[in-house]
Design a protein around this nucleic acid. Structure first.
Lengths: 218, 218
DNA sequence: TGAGTTTGTATCATTTTTGTAACAGGGGAC
DNA sequence: GTCCCCTGTTACAAAAATGATACAAACTCA
């Protein structure tokens, strides 16, 4: 699961980006100023940082070098016409930049591109006898398309991106349902059963007693 | 089929790039110096030009402006450490750059990215049994002109430019209506129905439950 | 101005997804 | 070995999403 930090002081833009990234299957945090951004960077591991150059308090370049020191790839988000900033940003080591206003499709393409470059994500995932296309949201097993529902697909993605990992129900719920887990619900279990059955993963998704489930590759 | 011109004097590198691009499904020409490059650019239409900066005879920047005048996207190929060149290249209008030595996967990703970005300005698109002229905004199906409305045309364009992709309603709305999607509106759906009917794409535009729609080529 | 288009909302029918409940069975803890 | 909690399974009903149709507002073009 890829985690992206958005550092952007304009709330509407931050929200727009966040919504779209979440839809595309990423996990997102937002920081509204440089200080908050630096805090979040130090507290969590992120796979990518979208960074607005013009920020209150700490400016973008300082944050850039901080992120780089943590080996987090950075994509600059610049306002239109600030060509000098683009150049400066690239010199300073940003991995990409995008100019506001931008097409959401372009943003997604660039995000994917960066993550792919840093070997974090792929459009196609081949695992066991499954071929997963994360862009078309299709899964094939031995060439035959599986009819997975929205949640089943997200659940499968979580498993294949975290193989051999004991995933807590809480973790699963929060990733797939994107809302806090209130405990005491069989929802996750039921979806796991359905996924197991549809994808023929009875042997590969195993229950971990009192924890949740684990995806086995063997 | 996308056609790519590689202008590169080092034969081993040119061959390596060519081989990989062909394998990835592109059609390739190679020019070994600037003069040959300029000739080929004038003789054929290319969708992308990969351009080495350090060339005998004509240097990369002159070729860049020539390619730009023909509206051919250009990606600079620079040797490592030539940071100044990167900056200069971007300023001069290159659409992307890549540093030697590079990962083939990265090259392919970047090529794809550029083509995706520029595909949007292609005048003629032939797909399935449709002929689309993006300038006159006319669509023919088996030679017969379809009477599409403004929004229907934009919607069709979005689909044909993103085939086999699960497009979210948000994405569709923001692209075609060019304003933020506020959720909970059947507008996109309705336009999809109309487009399906008028263009006879009932089989090709399929609903992706809880997501939006997907354009199928098969 | 007025007829014809285009566009978006509202409504209803149908299909699909999702989550709760209830019960059965099995694996740990002791 | 026994008991109990946890997980597997099935059924069902609520909720949500999509397709289809009708209609009204907005816009176009003569």
């Amino acid at each position: 699961m890829n985690k992206i930090l958005i550092i952007e002081d304009e709330e509407s833009i931050a929200t727009l980006i966040k919504m779209n990234l979440i839809k595309a299957g990423y996990q997102c945090d937002v920081a509204y100023d440089g200080a908050e951004g630096a805090d979040k960077l130090s507290e969590n591991h992120y796979d990518l940082c979208l960074l607005d150059i013009m920020l209150p308090e700490i400016n973008g370049y300082e944050l850039l070098s901080y992120a780089k020191s943590l080996e987090v790839p950075v994509m600059f988000v610049t306002a239109k016409g600030e060509t000098q900033d683009k150049v400066k940003g690239l010199k300073a080591g940003a991995d990409d930049y995008i100019t506001k206003p931008f097409e959401i499709l372009e943003l997604l393409a660039r995000v994917e591109n960066i993550l792919r470059r840093f070997h974090k994500t792929e459009q196609y995932i081949k695992i066991l006898d499954l071929d997963i296309d994360t862009v078309s949201r299709e899964v094939r097993k031995n060439g035959k398309v599986l009819k997975l529902t929205y949640k089943e697909f997200d659940l499968l993605l979580l498993f294949v991106r975290n193989p051999e990992t004991a995933l807590y129900r809480e973790t699963i719920y929060e990733h797939v349902w994107d809302s806090p887990y209130l405990g005491d619900s069989r929802t996750v279990d039921l979806h796991v059963q359905r996924l197991r059955k549809k994808a023929g993963l009875e042997k590969n998704i195993e229950a971990v007693y009192k924890v949740g489930y684990r995806f086995r590759l063997r």
